[in-house]
Design a protein around this nucleic acid. Structure first.
Lengths: 347, 347
DNA sequence: CTGAAAGCGCTAACAC
DNA sequence: GTGTTAGCGCTTTCAG
């Protein structure tokens, strides 16, 4: 039961007529306490509503059981789903979470952020900000000097860095191959913003898959969006104008696919009869687009979970074994979900 | 620059040939330091890459400059947008954020959660979990005994409790009145899950507004969903079956409106010619439904910002003035966004 | 202006 | 089994 004033270990000790050390042993479940002493102490702890200060404990043990997470764009569903996994797994592993959100995706003043986490003695850090532009420039120089493990999400593998990522290239490949297999031939692409690594990977996969199938890929065949529905509103109209004969489009995410649907409806282009569509992300809503959207499901929740498991593993082995843990790279595979927006094309 | 080993104030002191107090004064910008001493210390701080331990500081000052936030359902966009506001405002006010996510919306084992926050000496708590079922039962008994301020989001005002909420009743009223004004008369409702306070408020507003307009409200005129698109898939079909002559529907949130669109399309019901639709939430995507969705915009980001400003105010005045701050209730007003799904009905 | 001593709440290491 | 001593890294108090 929460109480108005904070009780200290001293008060418990004096109330139970033992030393603080004994109280400490009881609350930490150490063996060397006489059963009746233990019981007496426990009774006092209960009665006073005593709860040990994690702060004091962290200070002396040099171990806070707290993880720092740096994120960006929580107002979007992707980062939130990842954070959801992170929070859940952190809790499950008995740690707490200190949250920092970057004001912008491409903010790159990593230093004060990292310091504020280090000042609070976090045991490890998850850098859950996607790789954009040059926002990873500091890795090479600074990561090796950090006193604690740091785990990066969603970025290009790099020697010496621990990373958990989703295979965006493979996702783009699955999407494009699916469209090819269904008989589409003039396949356009609405990409995410190309300063994002993920957007580039998806586009690169689309391009290579077409080329490997012996199809030409022209400049006018793809347009850049910025992940938002409103951006693809413009992008899709441009694509229609500049690439005649379009029979399918691979859209960089499900939000952008939504306005592809809207523009198509407004222009009398029927999906899927006149135009096949494949999205990316697998947001729950995409199953209720009409027609239901074929998409690439990326499990961002699991991404977060994996990152934490791995990070905690790094923390705990580097403590025990005293030797540094080898940086590890984990790549999760996305999945193709076939729905109604990409049926086999009649010959 | 981050450094491998942690530097302590002692090392800085000895390196600069001063006492630790002097170093302390310098890093806290206290006045009583000779300019040249200050400069010498600053130089050493810089050279060694010293950063004070927030932990040790919190311990002695009994003030951690950290806020605890308890949230739930981060995989949904609503809670994330709120957390976004919370994180941003917390940062802006110079605090850090300790994040806890409930495994389920209706989890009500508040006790261990609160204790784990208190153990880390948070200066205040934001309870950002919506009011559902009896998950507020503990307030009356426990809140008055908490040693720190606690701020609740999204719940029914209650004496003695600090709350920031959005006026869901007013939102439901705006939506329903709009449909009435546009000439719709047989207006159905797909509600959120009715153990949610927000869902009940929206429904109550819909019902009262119809009654005040002299229209009957029958049992068969509304169906309960669970906020997800899939739930309203079922709910809307049921509504169509059980309430003939439906000419408009007020849907509890924008996600559920999405499958109303899908079912309508599949059944040849034209929106808006045959059916007017109004949603709730104002998610960015709703502007790209086809036709664009009229909805009630609730600014959840601002909700989070307000909650933090208020909480920090409570913390800082209760410290200075030593007297408890009066609990405050802040109600934010949602806004009607008129788009294309609810045109004036031809007579 | 500066330093010495005390202590925040807890635990590690050692005595008894 | 249990208590004592020391100290995590910092700030407060008070003396000079």
């Amino acid at each position: 039961m929460p109480i108005k004033k904070r009780i200290t270990i001293k008060q418990v000790a004096s109330e139970a007529s033992v030393s603080t050390q004994t109280v400490s042993r009881v609350i930490n479940n150490r063996p060397d306490v006489a059963p009746e002493t233990r019981q007496r102490v426990e009774e006092v702890v209960e009665r006073l509503g005593y709860h040990p200060s994690a702060l004091a404990r962290s200070l002396i043990q040099q171990h806070s059981y707290t993880l720092g997470v740096v994120t960006a764009g929580l107002k979007y569903i992707g980062p939130s789903r990842t954070l959801n996994g992170i929070a859940q797994q952190t809790e499950a592993m008995g740690y707490s979470l200190l949250l920092k959100e970057l004001p912008r995706f491409d903010a790159n003043d990593f230093e004060p952020l990292l310091q504020s986490l280090l000042a609070r003695q976090v045991d490890g850090v998850i850098w859950a900000v996607p790789q954009i532009g040059a926002n990873r420039y500091w890795l090479k120089e600074h990561v090796p000097h950090l006193p604690i493990p740091i785990m990066f999400l969603t970025m290009e593998p790099q020697p010496g860095i621990s990373i958990v990522s989703i295979d965006n290239y493979q996702g783009g490949r699955l999407a494009t191959k699916h469209l090819l297999e269904q008989g589409y031939r003039r396949i356009g692409h609405i990409s995410g913003p190309l300063d994002w690594w993920e957007a580039r990977e998806r586009k690169r996969a689309w391009e290579n898959t077409l080329l490997e199938a012996g199809l030409p890929v022209e400049e006018c065949q793809s347009v850049e969006g910025n992940w938002s529905s409103s951006s693809s509103d413009r992008a899709f109209r441009q694509l229609l104008d500049q690439f005649p004969g379009l029979d399918a489009v691979f859209v960089g995410n499900d939000q952008m696919a939504l306005s592809v649907y809207a523009i198509a409806s407004a222009r009398g282009i029927r999906i899927p009869q006149d135009l096949g569509v494949v999205g990316f992300d697998g947001i729950p809503e995409s199953a209720y687009y009409w027609p239901a959207l074929t998409t690439i499901d990326q499990n961002q929740h699991e991404l977060g979970c994996n990152a934490i498991s791995e990070l905690v593993y790094m923390i705990e082995t580097s403590e025990h074994g005293k030797k540094e843990v080898e940086p590890r790279v984990i790549i999760l595979q996305p999945e193709l979900i076939i729905r109604e927006s990409s049926p086999r094309r009649p010959i």
